[in-house]
């Protein structure tokens, strides 16, 4: 493959801006402050700086240097992770709380709040740890597997984790893992995924059931780092994607219509909820992660007992 000089030049410019950006990130990599939940502070996705809006000129560099592209890829509901197959306990919750169905939307709001709190307390620490220490991926995977209390949740997490591995290897890796290593921060993550992938494949046929599993949360953290997202984006998008999946499940379970779902998704309340949960778990070590909603474990575990089901969890 031969690139023409102008392409190479733009590539170089892009790499240089990325390099600068990642160096800046590396400097701030101690991440001393949690993300702020105040709306007037910076929101976690870094859009091109506000000057881009004042100048009417399209600034390609600014878009390139931000991780906007990767961010949009990862937040796409068409990202083939199979998230649509899981309701994260919503279906079971509805079946267990029939009397509440007189007002399904209120009941759903309660579930969404519980679900986000639970996800943030159980899985988010693993996302953050995966991002912060990609080299620990295998240990994180083992510990998360040990902390997953039921088969239903384990299946959902592993299926999505392996799907993410698949998307990374077959689609993203070519574009985001650049050989030559101009970007040390992402390279650590890329090699961690490669190692983990090898470990996953080599123990796949092994009868030893304690081999690597490929859980979703720690992999998400590592993949986001490999794709150049910062930690706040990684955490926010993880929780937001979960909220999207639950809302999408609610639409398909006839709890509400699609406009109402988008209304909730767009609401400031949801943003505040997500922010406050992330802020709360920002410094939670993985061994301190735990279930804050015991009732949710019961609903998810009892999903298997539903007479009819449209979701896998």
């Amino acid at each position: 493959m031969v690139l023409d000089p102008s392409e190479i030049q733009s590539e170089i410019a892009q790499l240089e801006t990325r390099l600068q950006e990642m160096r800046a990130q590396l400097d701030a990599s101690i991440y001393p402050s949690p993300p702020s939940s105040y709306p007037d502070n910076k929101i976690p996705w870094t859009m091109p700086s506000s000057t881009a809006f004042y100048n009417n000129k399209f600034r390609a560099d600014a878009v390139r240097s931000s991780s906007l592209h990767a961010l949009l890829l990862l937040s796409d509901s068409a990202l083939p992770l199979g998230s649509f197959a899981y309701s994260s306990g919503l279906e079971s919750y509805l079946a267990h709380n029939k009397p509440l169905r007189t007002n399904p939307v209120t009941s759903f709001h309660r579930f969404l709040k519980l679900s986000i709190a639970s996800l943030a307390s159980t899985s988010l620490p693993y996302v953050l740890a995966g991002y912060r220490q990609p080299e620990d991926l295998e240990t994180l995977d083992n510990d998360l597997d040990a902390s997953t209390p039921c088969i239903v949740a384990q299946r959902a997490s592993v299926a999505q984790g392996r799907a993410l591995m698949g998307v990374w290897e077959r689609a993203f890796r070519v574009s985001f893992a650049r050989p030559g290593g101009t970007d040390a921060s992402a390279d650590v993550a890329v090699s961690a995924i490669d190692d983990f992938s090898d470990a996953l494949k080599s123990t796949f046929d092994n009868a030893d059931e304690l081999g690597p599993m490929g859980h979703f949360a720690p992999l998400w953290g590592v993949v986001c780092r490999a794709m150049g997202l910062d930690l706040q984006q990684t955490a926010y998008i993880f929780v937001l994607n979960h909220a999207k999946a639950v809302l999408s499940a609610a639409v398909r379970a006839s709890v509400m219509g699609p406009y109402q779902a988008q209304n909730i998704l767009a609401s400031q309340k949801l943003q505040d909820t997500i922010m406050s949960r992330i802020e709360r778990e920002w410094d939670t070590e993985v061994d301190q992660a735990g279930q804050v909603v015991p009732a949710l474990d019961l609903w998810v575990g009892r999903h298997e007992l539903l007479y009819s089901r449209i979701f896998n969890s």
Binding site: S121, N142, D143, A146, S147, P149, L210, D287, Q288, A289, G290, Q291, V292, P294
Partner: peptide, 11 residues
């Protein structure tokens, strides 16, 4: 090696 962790937090 961690085999199982069951953690409940009521706060």
């Amino acid at each position: 090696r961690l085999l199982l962790r069951d953690s409940v937090i009521l706060d």
